[in-house]
């Protein structure tokens, strides 16, 4: 492998990896950093299962090259929970049975967190459009939207 050295911060920790220049950040995270919570559902940016934040911005990691991440801060589902407790979104996904097979769940959580970071009190419609880039084939989205609504409420209470 002819690789390039990439220096990043992943979920707050300094991480260095080497990857070929044509490798996607998704593959780098999964195969080189070992973060398999980031899933590949399509590889073309259509399903959102590989959602991460790159310098605070929600992106599909399948549409980013590993080398582009040099000097960036990356956030994945593995970094959502505090050391002791789950993030309110994670708790409410479990409470609301907002997952069945669970393969889309990491992407939904990262995307929902990106939404709630921007908008503390989104409407149902705003939630649905903000999550439109994440495909779920099991749930019909019903319980996912309800879980995000409940987590938003929890987060608003926490702030007070």
């Amino acid at each position: 492998m002819t690789g390039v050295l990439v220096d990043t911060t992943v979920n707050g920790d300094a991480v260095q990896f080497a990857c070929p220049t044509d490798e996607t950040l998704l593959d780098s995270l999964r195969d080189r950093v070992g973060l398999t919570g980031v899933k590949e559902g399509c590889g073309t940016g259509d399903c959102g299962a590989c959602s991460i934040t790159l310098d605070g911005q929600l992106v599909c990691s399948c549409l980013v090259l590993g080398v582009e991440a040099n000097g960036s801060e990356i956030g994945t589902v593995e970094g959502l929970a505090d050391s002791e407790s789950l993030h309110p979104l994670q708790e409410q996904f479990i409470n609301h049975a907002a997952l069945q097979c669970g393969i889309c769940t990491p992407g939904f959580l990262v995307a929902a967190k990106a939404l709630l970071d921007k908008n503390k009190d989104p409407s149902e419609e705003q939630i649905r459009y903000a999550l439109a880039g994440n495909l779920c084939r099991c749930t019909g989205y019903d319980k996912i939207v309800r879980a995000v609504q409940a987590a938003a409420k929890d987060l608003r209470k926490k702030k007070k």
Binding site: G45, G48, S51, L54, Q57, L58, V59, C60, L63, V64, A111, A114, L115, A130, A132, G133, N134
Partner: peptide
Amino acid sequence: IGSDQVQGR
């Protein structure tokens, strides 16, 4: 163009 994820790029 695309989802929020795609909009970021």
